[in-house]
Design a protein around this nucleic acid. Sequence first.
DNA 1: ATTCATTATTGACCGCGGTCAATTTTGTGT
DNA 2: ACACAAAATTGACCGCGGTCAATAATGAAT
Lengths: 198, 198
Amino acid sequence: MTTAIQPRTLKTRARLIEAATAIVEDSSFTELRVEEVVRRAGVAKGTFFAHFKDKDALLDRMIGEIIDQHLDQIGAGAAPTSVDQIMVALTPLMTFIGSEREVFGVILRYSGATTVEEIGPIAATFERFVLVLSDWFIDGPFRQDADPATLAEGVQAFMFQALALNFCAINNQRSVHDRLRPYLELWLHPAKALDPQG
Amino acid sequence: MTTAIQPRTLKTRARLIEAATAIVEDSSFTELRVEEVVRRAGVAKGTFFAHFKDKDALLDRMIGEIIDQHLDQIGAGAAPTSVDQIMVALTPLMTFIGSEREVFGVILRYSGATTVEEIGPIAATFERFVLVLSDWFIDGPFRQDADPATLAEGVQAFMFQALALNFCAINNQRSVHDRLRPYLELWLHPAKALDPQG
DNA sequence: ATTCATTATTGACCGCGGTCAATTTTGTGT
DNA sequence: ACACAAAATTGACCGCGGTCAATAATGAAT
C-alpha cells in the first residue's frame, strides 16, 4: 500500500491558504476569488477543489480560525461581572463579524453543519462560544434561574440580532452596542429590570 | 412627456412572477433558475433583470408575500396569553421559514435593506412582525418591565436562533419547538422562572 | 399618418464557482 | 532500476447569475 497522505499535499494546501490570506489582507473576504487564489498559489483551478469542497469551505476555515483567536482572548480574561463588561469582552469578536457583509454571511451559512461528520470550523467555534460564556453564568452576578448554556445561547442570539439589524439601513442609526445592551440587561438581569432598586 | 409606465411592463412582470410561482410549486425555491423563469415566461434573459435587480429581488418579493400572509393570520387571531399559545401562533410562519435552506438564507440576507429607499418586502415584514407581536405584550400576562417592541425583537431573535440551530445537524435532535420554548419562557416570564409557584 | 423621444426587450457576452476525464507525480514492492 | 497502483494535479468545460450596446415597441405631439 502507498502513503495515505503525501507531503506534497500539505505543501499545496499551505500555499493555497497562504495565497488566500494574502488576498484578504490586500483587499477583503468579499473580493476573494478562487481564480485569484490559484493564480497566486501557482496551481490549477481543479487543485483548489481537490483541497476544499468549495469556496465557502476555505472561508469557513479562515474565518473560523479568526473567531477562535477571539475566543482565546475572551476565555483568557476574567469573567465579566456586569452587562457592560460582557459587551466590552465581546466587542472585538462582534467588530470582526460585523466588519464585512460577506463575513457575516459566511458565518450565518456555516454556523450550522449539514452532517454530523462535517462540523466545520465556524460551527465548532459557536459550540465553543456557548461553553466559554456558560462559565460566566455559573455563580456569576447574573440570573441563576436558568441553565447557563441556555443563557449563553441567548446572548449569541441577541448578538446576531443586533448585528443583523445593524446591517439594515432602516435602523442602523443606533450602534450595535446601544442595541445589544437593553437585550442583555433584560435577559441577564430580569429581577433588576423588574425592580431598578434591586 | 410620455406615460411613465407602460401596460406592457406590468404584463411582462406578471408573467415573470407567474412563471416563477409555477416553478416553485413544481419544485422549490432552491431549484428556481432565472433561465427557467424567462423560458416559461417567453421573454429574454435581459428582460428579467430589467424588472428585478437580481434573482434575490424576485425571491424577496415572493417570500415577502408569503410571510405577509402568515402575519395576516397571526394578527387576526386573539392575542396569546401564554408562551405555548405564542408558539402555536408562530408555528406556521416558522415552518415556512424553516422549510428550505434557500428560503432561510434569502430571509437572512434580505432581513436588512442596503439603503433606506430600498426597504424590501422581507425587511418590511420584519418591521411588521415586531408591530404585531408588540400588541401582545401591552397589558398581556407577560413581563411588563420592558418595552413591548424590545420583547418582540427578542422573540424574533430567539425564533431565528432556534431555526438556525435546527438547520445544524449537530443539534437538530430537539425540535424547533422544544428549543424555542425555554428561550421564550425565560424571556417573557422571568418572574415565573425565578419562582415556579408565582 | 408621421415623427420622435422614451421605455422595453433582446441575446451575445462575461465572471466566477464548480466538475471531471485525462495526465503526471509519488511511494512501494520486486 | 523498473513496474505499478494510488494519489495529486491539470485545464477545458459547464451552469448560471448578471451586463449592456443594439434594436424594437410605444404613445404623445403635430
